[in-house]
């Protein structure tokens, strides 16, 4: 049985891929993401992390871009290029882990609510709707204020506040899958909850979850930048948000230090756009109603 199942799945994946490559925006996004991730991974191999240390800053303060410092220097004389490069690591790391947490909570809540039904479902959906409406940044701010500063806190604060929309999506999809006859067949044959969920519901729901993930990453990266900008990030780490915080606090605007302001912000914009493009392309592949050639 399994070999046929896997054959079909492999065929589905390759046809999805073919459909995806037809979407120009999605491909561009994917290539950009690939480049950014490779650069972020290469940072420790290609560059020297000591340049991030304020006490070992080599350049003058607020130096505009030059041959030596391509992106100029910040208020302490550190290279903005180096800061931006290393900052991408934290932004990506937090964006991705927070997304994994958020999507995991969302999937768990969504599948549980749809599969078990009854009072548990009503309660879970009430909580989901509550979190959906609640301004997530306000809650994330409160959470990261009371917890000790650090990467873990930021990941937790973003993950715990952003799962509601995935929970709703997963619940709707689970309900529609569970209404199909093969689920009834599995139950009649004696399949328990674990079997039905693990073997039938999850494989059918996961593609949707995956699409949702790419869109959630974009939100998580902006959320990380925002929390760090407000001073709630890990003080020992350079991230795009903390660079922008420094720019704001040390008067980059009045210094007209555009070279300190542009790179971290553009970094966020490029990554968020790339994830959004990939997510929208995947959405089009999985939802034929959105395709142009109707």
């Amino acid at each position: 049985m399994t070999s046929i199942v896997w054959q079909r799945r492999r065929a589905a994946v390759s046809s999805t891929w073919r459909e995806f490559t037809r979407n120009r925006g999605g491909l561009v996004g994917l290539v950009v993401l690939g480049v950014v991730v490779v650069l972020a991974l290469l940072a420790p191999l290609v560059t020297d992390a000591t340049g991030l240390d304020v006490t070992k800053a080599a350049g003058d303060r607020w130096q505009p871009p030059s041959g030596e410092y391509w992106f100029g220097t910040d208020h302490t004389g550190r290279s903005v290029l180096l800061l931006t490069w290393w900052g991408s690591r934290i932004s990506l790391l937090i964006g991705l882990t927070a997304t994994v947490l958020s999507v995991a909570i969302g999937t768990l809540v969504g599948v549980t609510a749809a599969h078990f039904g009854g009072w548990a479902s009503a309660g879970l959906m009430w909580v989901t709707n509550f979190f959906l409406v609640l301004p997530s940044l306000v809650l994330a701010i409160a959470l990261s204020t009371v917890l000790p500063r650090g990467i873990g806190t930021i990941v937790l604060a973003i993950g715990v506040t952003s799962w509601a929309s995935s929970a709703r999506l997963v619940r709707a999809q689970t309900l529609s899958v569970e209404a199909r006859p093969f689920i009834e067949r599995a139950k009649v044959l004696g399949g328990g909850h674990a079997h039905v969920i693990g073997r039938h519901v999850l494989p059918a729901v996961l593609p949707l979850v995956f699409v949702n993930t790419t869109l959630t990453v974009a939100n998580a990266i902006v959320a990380e930048a925002t929390l760090s900008f407000l001073g709630l990030g890990d003080p020992s780490m350079v991230s795009w948000g903390s660079m922008l915080r420094a720019a704001n606090l040390h008067g980059a605007v009045s210094q007209r230090a555009w070279w300190f302001l542009l790179p971290p912000g553009l970094g966020v914009v490029v990554i968020v756009l790339a994830f959004t493009l990939v997510g929208r392309a995947l959405e089009t592949v999985l939802n034929p109603r959105l395709r142009g050639d109707r």
Binding site: L244, N248, L261, G265, L273
Partner: peptide, 16 residues
């Protein structure tokens, strides 16, 4: 593009 921008960054850019 606007949606991808962090509000505070756009704010600093505009005022500069």
């Amino acid at each position: 593009l606007g949606w991808a921008m962090p509000a505070f960054w756009l704010g600093m850019l505009l005022s500069m």
